[in-house]
Nucleic acid binder design. Structure first.
Lengths: 342, 342
DNA sequence: TGATTTTTGATTTACGTACATCATTCTTCG
DNA sequence: CGAAGAATGATGTACGTAAATCAAAAATCA
């Protein structure tokens, strides 16, 4: 049987109350006694029964999720995933508050982080923007013992506890290899459509993509990246212009959002007899259809539901001071082609 | 606040004891009263606090995992994953017994299932073999209310509660598309190496592969599949012979185990100036190295750890009569190329 | 109607932990 | 040495559910 606090008390030769004081870091225990108790815990391999503890505490985990109020499909999914997780929260004892911030606005994000900290949540998840004020806000939070997890987009060189998102450089490299091999032996240029290269995940995808392109596919050269600000209309315009301007463009990597505009541009090009091998990100109703009709060749996807659930699991573990299973929390890049759509 | 049994009792105008009788299906409650209680539960949206219930019951979940004692890397990983899950079991209240059965032996498997049922476990996970005695054994178990989950290889047309494994036809289709596009415009034959076409997952991969090959890549024709029985030495021999016998063989899909032998054969071929575009299954130290040296072009992988954890989550949910989050339990096919290795 | 059976209520204990209170013992220092 | 203060023990309650017991009420049958 699993040892309980009673066993620890007996083993250490102290009372239950003292064990409790040690375990919950309450004052009034001599160092010597504390060590005795800790040794007993070690010896018996005691692990606190989190379920019982939470029951006793009547504990709930108030979490705050800070999301950009961006109108693209992926962010919508992410939001839905959070809401859905909150539904289940009644069972899991979690309660999630969503805070909206303007997209691509570092100052607003930093402020939102500080504000979120005021409520003393059990943890905060945030879609990060790479900027010093944000880093500073995160530092303040973690210093106060509030676990912070970055979601989808990481915050490098910060004190955040965990990143729940995909390996974006690897995503870019993958896109490059697939594009390169699908275009094997052909010569030409490839376009790149990003949302904004000031967002870390887009940056990272682009650099992974460029790296492999340069190293392994010398016959293909990359055009200067377009920035569509994850906006459909703008994306459409940029891509259409690029296709017209570069008759030798035979491939396209869209590493951000705004798929609807991109698809429209590709459809238009198709009517003019131009077909590009295209790789895009995020599986949605639109991108799925584009895969099926052959406008897209590959869609790289991150599963919003997984990311949210992983973030919650990690926040909960951090709040309880438990270990996380690293392998379980690795968010994988799904590679979808027409034939393995779920 | 979440309603408790007390609230239900008050709402239904009955005593706590009666609510308990209804909730735990104990005898001695009139139909009329039972309905009253159920309506109260419905009205207040009561959800039993599983943590508190388990605490009260002192419940543990004894699960049985039936695994083939196959000596390939993937089965080893699967076994490790189970052992590791069992380690964590002290916290999760699960206790897993592993039962070994000879590989590819349906009779032995059916017997093992029946035997496992004798101990009245809270659930059984099994790497299935497609055969009637196995189906029959599973039927008996589920009839007795023991949840059964198939792991890695499914058992079609059976009463199993869930399948924790990848979509194998989709894996085969994916392999076909990638192989076909990597070989774009080239003409020739492609080989297929299976473990045994009597195992459902291999069957399914092969049929998915054939389907897409026939439909989209008419310039490539599939050679009759080789059966390597997931045995390295045999695989090596078969592949080496095939490469020699078919000078026009330019691609290879290995959909089973035995990667070591396959790699050896490919290395040998390389020294003779033959390079095949190769797609294999399961990421291991060997296949990873083969990816890095270019002997393999793609490795399709199922994550053993995920499969095991998913199986446990589902078994637990079934044992508690809870819903499972379908999206969370979908086991995905990882597509690895040199550039996105974790 | 009275006896019998079924249904229901009231109450208690337990699970493992958290947390509070009050009493007691041990230290330490003047 | 005695008192103040710190450390520890003893004990009880709570969390939400399970499970058992025994008494009381209601329904059923003869």
């Amino acid at each position: 049987m699993r040892p309980t606090v009673h066993d620890i008390a007996a083993e250490a030769g102290v009372s239950l109350a003292t064990v409790d004081r040690v375990m919950n870091a309450r004052p009034g225990v001599r160092e010597k006694t504390k060590v005795k108790v800790e040794q007993a815990i070690e010896k018996l391999g005691y692990v606190r029964d989190v379920a019982a503890a939470n029951l006793a505490k009547g504990r709930t985990y108030p979490f705050t999720f800070i999301l950009p109020c961006n109108e693209n499909a992926f962010m919508g999914e992410l939001r839905d995933a959070v809401l859905q997780a909150n539904e289940r929260g009644r069972i899991e004892r979690t309660q999630i508050t969503i805070v909206d911030v303007p997209a691509f606005d570092a100052e607003a994000l930093a402020e939102a982080l500080i504000a979120a900290g005021e409520d003393n949540p059990a943890g905060i998840a945030v879609v990060a923007i790479q900027a010093d004020p944000v880093r500073e806000a995160v530092r303040k939070l973690t210093e106060r013992g509030i676990p912070v997890v970055t979601l989808v987009s990481d915050l490098e060189d910060s004190t955040r506890d965990h990143y729940a998102g995909v390996d974006n450089p690897a995503a870019g490299r993958t896109a490059a290899t697939l594009l390169g091999r699908f275009l094997s032996r052909q010569e030409g240029t490839v376009g790149v459509l990003a949302g904004s290269l000031s967002v870390r995940d887009h940056q990272n995808r682009f650099s992974g993509f460029s790296e492999i392109m340069a190293a392994h596919f010398p016959k293909l050269s990359i055009l200067p990246p377009m920035e569509g600000r994850d906006d459909s209309a703008l994306a459409r315009k940029l891509v259409a212009e690029a296709i017209d301007a570069h008759p030798d463009m035979i491939g396209l990597y869209s590493l951000g959002a705004g798929n609807r505009g991109l698809i429209a541009a590709l459809e238009e090009a198709r009517t003019k007899g131009r077909e590009l091998v295209t790789i895009a990100h995020e599986l949605s109703a639109h991108s799925r259809e584009a895969l099926e009709t052959g406008l897209f060749d590959v869609v790289l996807n991150q599963d919003a539901g997984h990311e949210v659930r992983s973030a919650i699991r990690v926040l909960k573990a951090k709040a309880d001071g438990l270990e996380v299973i690293a392998a379980q929390e690795r968010i994988r890049i799904d590679i979808f082609i027409k034939d393995n759509l779920p």
